[in-house]
């Protein structure tokens, strides 16, 4: 079983959900992103999702777009992202990587899988790669023992849900709303339905992302999902902070609030 699977099993035994916190690699700097992700782990985030910044992130809302732009303008490269993954994995927290497909294809799919595994990454979340186009990634992830998280959506047909989860390993990412990343005022009505539809076709843990930003929302999602995935709200802590120390403080505070939320699921 993968390290992600272990984290989900442990949380399930404790009667809570796993908290996944996302941050773009190299935002605001390489060093700064390592510090941010380390702070998140210390404050109770179970799994770190490192997003590789990309010039054309169609699944991301304005907050992560801006953070990605800052990272890219700072010159962050795929090799830097791998170094960041290695540094964060050294904290002991499982590190999953989120990336649009072109940077992986450009790096070389097998070479990327090999280097990601060597850096201690557990696997990939692929927002614009569906299993239909993933033959090379299926082979490379098998060869290097990496997890594969494909997305399922409220618009997925039953047939596609079954096909998609069949190709997943580690956990399944359920997109709570029809839309892009970004904190929203209320959590989605579609998400619980999607999670139960997903559970009908797989025993893998199901994480829910898109639109979760507060402890209360995390508690609500923890009530029906195995994992709560938070990105934009955490990124905003750093983006809006007047200086690095204030950003890390805000990040710790929100991480702790979210960690508290996943431990007190609303049922």
């Amino acid at each position: 079983m993968s390290r992600i699977g272990v984290a989900f099993d442990k949380a399930r035994a404790d009667g809570r959900a796993v908290l996944v916190g996302c941050m773009p690699a190299g935002f605001p700097t390489v060093e700064g992103s390592i510090a941010a992700m380390t702070a998140m782990v210390e404050a109770g985030v179970d799994v770190i999702e490192v997003e590789i910044p990309y010039s054309d992130p169609v699944m991301d809302g304005p907050v992560i777009q801006k953070a990605s732009d800052i990272a890219l303008a700072g010159g962050v490269r795929t090799a830097d992202a791998l170094r960041i993954i290695e540094a964060v994995a050294a904290t002991g927290a499982p590190v999953v990587t989120m990336t649009y497909w072109n940077p992986v294809e450009r790096y070389g799919v097998d070479a990327f899988a090999r280097d990601l595994a060597a850096a201690g990454g557990t696997g990939l979340i692929t927002p614009d790669l569906i299993p239909d186009e993933a033959q090379e990634w299926l082979a490379a992830s098998d060869a290097h023992g990496l997890d594969r998280t494909f997305l399922v959506s409220p618009s997925s047909t039953d047939q596609r849900l079954a096909m998609t989860v069949q190709h997943c390993r580690g956990f399944v990412y359920a997109t709570a709303v029809m839309g892009v990343t970004g904190a929203r005022a209320r959590t989605s009505d579609a998400a619980p339905i999607l999670v139960s539809r997903t559970r009908e076709v797989t025993d893998l843990p199901v994480g829910v992302g898109l639109g979760v930003g507060t402890g209360a929302q995390a508690a609500t999602v923890a009530g029906y999902a195995d994992g709560v995935i938070v990105g934009s709200a955490l990124v905003r802590c750093v983006l809006d902070a007047p200086d690095r120390a204030a950003g890390l403080t805000a990040l710790r505070t929100l991480s702790a609030e979210l960690a508290d939320g996943v431990r007190n699921p609303t049922r």
Binding site: V58, M59, W101, P127, D128, L129, I130, D132, E133, F150, L151, V152, S153, P154, S155, S156, T157, R160, T164, T175, M178
Partner: peptide, 20 residues
């Protein structure tokens, strides 16, 4: 039928768009 012109084309999109 999946939109491939040799090694080109296809669909590299979020799952949310596949149904549409």
């Amino acid at each position: 039928t999946a939109g491939h012109f040799g090694r080109f084309g296809g669909r590299f999109v979020p799952e949310a768009l596949v149904a549409a």
